[in-house]
């Protein structure tokens, strides 16, 4: 448990999760307040997009790491 991500990055992660809940709640209230039916599929869409994009690009970086990462001074200068 000591190495779990939630413990290691504790405060920052909890603040982020709280922010996400609040933002989705706000979006819900705006959508319903404007008289539209809440399109559940769109609530939090941007947050999911952000999360997926971050993880996806990180994944590409991880994949590239195996191919392109080299030790220091590989260029020889």
């Amino acid at each position: 448990m000591k190495d779990a991500i939630l413990v290691r990055n504790g405060p920052a992660l909890w603040v982020l999760l709280l922010g996400l809940v609040i933002s989705v709640g706000l979006e819900w209230s705006f959508v319903t307040g404007s008289g539209h039916s809440p399109a559940l599929s769109l609530l939090g869409f941007q947050a999911l997009l952000g999360l997926a994009a971050g993880l996806g690009l990180g994944g590409i970086g991880w994949a590239l790491a195996g191919l392109l990462a080299r030790r220091e001074g590989y260029y020889g200068d």
């Binding site: 991500i5 290691r8 982020l16 922010g19 996400l20 947050a47 999360l51 994009a53 971050g54 990180g58």
Partner: peptide, 16 residues
């Protein structure tokens, strides 16, 4: 804000 929060979450998940 949502985009930033989602992306920040991925940052902390990827941090190690």
């Amino acid at each position: 804000l949502q985009l930033a929060l989602g992306a920040a979450l991925s940052f902390f998940l990827l941090l190690p």
